[in-house]
Amino acid sequence: MTPALETQRNEDHKTAGDSFLNGIQGSVILLHGVFEPSVFDAVKSGSGTELFVMEGRPSLESAQTTCRELLRRKIKPTLIADNMAGFLFYRNLVKEVWLACQTVDDEGALCPVGSLIVGVLAKRHKVPVYVYPASKGSRAMGAQKDIFYFKGIKVAPQNIKGYVPLVEWLPKKYITEIRKS
């Protein structure tokens, strides 16, 4: 192997046995949804907790607002795509899940789409799920075209359909506790 290849391999092709992953075992709070900003007042930086933020396709508003609020509090979040939550659970990195939900009743909560994924994962991996208030309500459905674009750039081919649920019902069996803030 050439020295250049070796260097590239070391830089780009780290594998998941890395010390990075071992170093954050059980320390991740996984955040999803558009939270009331006051929710983050209790979060301390440097307390051995890592805050991972899901993108929240298609609008990405979830990631935008959560990252902005955390950065304002001098906390550097880590962004993941919505399909990467499972990996974090598989590797036992997650200690808590926080969801921002707009309506709560005795049967469950109306949460941003994607909450079922993390709720079911959390149940399988015995990780607590805390539901917090969302800062605002969401439409139930997006437009088809919302999923055809990413940051204004077309990502889908012509002549296909899109299905864009924006909220979903999370039954209470997936919720550990409902918190006011």
Partner: peptide, 15 residues
């Protein structure tokens, strides 16, 4: 016949 969904909509379509 194909419909595109976001990665986070998997639970919704299954439920």
């Amino acid at each position: 016949d194909v419909t595109l969904i976001a990665d986070n909509a998997v639970g919704s379509v299954m439920a």
